[in-house]
């Protein structure tokens, strides 16, 4: 990690927000000048993210900041954020995208966990095979994991393949923690063979409420008619929880068939308790809106 060097105090600079006055050349000059403070250097990059795209040398200079393990992590993350912001300008950044991704692959196993996570995220959003392989390896062999399993599953969801489903199923069977189980279930929401599992989870009153909510959402995509069926049953079940009833009501209101709902007197009656009593205000509002639409 680079030593912080003492420089002349510039309180105005530190207080100033991003300014359009710093030229691109000057921004890179400040950002790559180790005699400046990290704050000054990061601010210069943040102010002018396209500065690095002015020429090959400037880009290489900023990539060097990102690669250099002797730089502070704040500085390296600042360089990464600036380059990523520049990537939203294809005309300026396009010629350098290859170099950028190559650099990201090289630092994907960096000692800093935050940098690793961000780098793998950028690569996965670009459907990068290298990153996918590393994440799957980490799920199979935790000693090689670059990020925690829940993060790996979340990142794998950017480019889902059969191997990712297999890893997610294994996590659901034997979850290392609740977050990993939740992310595995989110990923499996696109897996048709998981529909029966989601039906079971949705109806299990002993299950975590968040998992039941995820299961309802998964069923909406995998078997929408099953979600409508279960949503109705949940609303008719006096012993189920208000929050899951609210999710069920939302599913029926947003995606149900108006005619069938309007004709279903038992269903409409089951919503009455949610529209009054001790239910939270927003559940009551939701129930009243539903009844107002279907039982005017």
């Amino acid at each position: 990690m680079a030593k912080k060097r003492k420089v002349a105090k510039r309180p105005k600079w530190k207080k100033r927000r991003a300014s359009p006055k710093v030229s691109a050349r000057r921004a890179v000059s400040i950002a790559t000048n180790e005699r400046r403070t990290d704050e000054q250097r990061v601010a210069a990059l943040a102010d002018s993210p396209l500065a690095a795209c002015e020429n090959d040398q400037d880009l290489e200079a900023v990539l060097n900041v990102l690669r250099n393990k002797d730089e502070s992590i704040k500085m390296r993350l600042g360089a990464l954020e600036s380059l990523q912001a520049a990537s939203f300008s294809a005309d300026a950044f396009g010629p350098y995208r290859g170099d950028y991704f190559a650099t990201l692959r090289k630092i994907a196993d960096d000692p800093d966990p935050e940098l690793r996570q961000r780098v793998l995220g950028i690569l996965m959003r670009g459907k990068d095979g290298f990153a996918q392989k590393k994440l799957l390896e980490g799920l199979k062999n935790p000693d090689k994991a670059l990020v925690p399993p829940e993060k790996a599953l979340q990142l794998l969801s950017y480019d889902v393949h059969a191997e990712a489903y297999s890893a997610a199923r294994a996590i659901v069977k034997k979850p290392p923690n609740d977050d990993a189980r939740r992310e595995a279930l989110r990923l499996l929401a696109a897996d048709a063979s998981s529909a029966p599992m989601f039906e079971k989870l949705l109806r299990d009153k002993n299950e975590l409420r968040e998992i039941r909510q995820i299961s309802a959402s998964a069923l909406h995509a995998l078997k929408p008619e099953k979600l409508q069926e279960h949503a109705r049953k949940i609303l008719l079940d006096n012993s189920d929880y208000d929050d899951i009833k609210a999710t069920s009501l939302t599913a029926l209101e947003q995606f149900g068939e108006d005619q069938a709902i309007g004709d279903d007197k038992a269903l409409l009656k089951s919503v009455d308790p949610l529209s009054a009593g001790e239910a939270p205000t927003k559940y009551k509002q939701s129930a009243r809106r539903f009844l107002g639409k279907h039982r005017p």
Binding site: V160, R186, A189, A216, S217, A218, A221, A251, Q254
Partner: peptide, 8 residues
């Protein structure tokens, strides 16, 4: 219920 690219 948001879902894109098959993922929830």
């Amino acid at each position: 219920f948001w879902k894109t690219d098959g993922v929830q």
